[in-house]
């Protein structure tokens, strides 16, 4: 019972902090807006992808991007807490490290999924057709994608001491995962070299983006994998990352 309340309070903290950061919420509207309106419109006239125009195709990819970037960024809160001391308050509390990790991780995942929700709103705003029911079908998949990604961010952050060093994640993890996920271009395009295909298959986000496209675009999308395969890969990825993350938090001082 104590563990459950500890979990709840840590989860609530992450969510409260998210809603208090007004600047971030505004900027999280603006970025996908740029991608979908400028990038999306620009490429729309470079050709169709099956029956889809590029903007429609890009939309689930940008959700994937937002989930990835937000999830990774959440690690920063761990460094922040270490730097400003609140981590000590959490670590000496009489609750287990598993609870601490899960509370923070699921709190951060909730924030990331909220960020994904914002993209749905932006999409609706610029005239991409989205069924509200589609959103509710996509929500659990969005969470499934974020659990593993947030765990990576938290794990890396638990080893780091300064906010500055966290910046390397942007170049060494975020961008490669983003570019290799098929968020921006179809991985099935003729002529895409073998190495790129292989690399993208090793990227968990590829399965996430594919699952989101299957749910959001429906019949118009030719999936890379069946939905259940995508979900199984994501689930396995989450389990592994959560185990690693819990271990990382157990050894944190």
């Amino acid at each position: 019972m104590t563990e459950l309340r500890g979990f709840y309070t840590l989860w609530l903290r992450e969510v409260k902090r998210y809603f208090r950061d007004k600047v971030r919420i505004v900027s999280s509207f603006f970025q996908p807006f740029l991608w979908l309106v400028i990038f999306g419109t620009g490429f729309r006239f470079s050709g169709q992808i099956g029956e889809l125009n590029y903007q429609e195709y890009l939309f689930p990819g940008i959700i994937g991007q937002a989930l990835l970037f937000t999830s990774m960024f959440m690690g920063i809160s761990v460094i922040w807490d270490k730097e400003f001391g609140f981590m000590k308050e959490i670590l000496v509390a009489p609750i287990s490290r598993v609870t601490i990790f899960l509370g923070k991780m699921i709190g951060d995942s909730t924030d990331a999924a909220l960020q994904g929700t914002i993209i749905f709103l932006v999409a609706a705003l610029i005239g991409i057709k989205v069924d509200p029911l589609t959103y509710f079908a996509a929500l659990p998949v969005m969470l499934l994608i974020t659990f593993g990604l947030v765990s990576i961010g938290l794990t890396i952050a638990s080893f780091m001491r300064s906010l500055e060093s966290f910046g390397v994640i942007q170049s060494f993890i975020n961008l490669p995962l983003f570019f290799l996920s098929g968020a921006l271009f179809p991985l099935t395009n003729p002529g895409i070299p073998e190495w790129l295909q292989t690399a993208s298959k090793a990227n968990p986000l590829t399965y996430g983006v594919d699952a989101l496209r299957t749910i959001i675009l429906g019949e118009a999308w030719q999936p890379l994998q069946a939905l259940h395969v995508n979900l199984a890969v994501l689930g396995a990825f989450d389990v592994i990352m959560i185990i690693i993350g819990t271990w990382a938090f157990t050894r944190m001082k």
Binding site: G6, T9, K16, D81, F84, F86, E89
Partner: peptide, 19 residues
């Protein structure tokens, strides 16, 4: 060792729940 993005009362509630 406080969370300065939260109010004083919220910090106290968090502590009460953690303990």
């Amino acid at each position: 060792s406080i969370d300065d993005r939260m109010t004083g009362r919220e910090n106290l509630f968090m502590h009460a729940n953690l303990y």
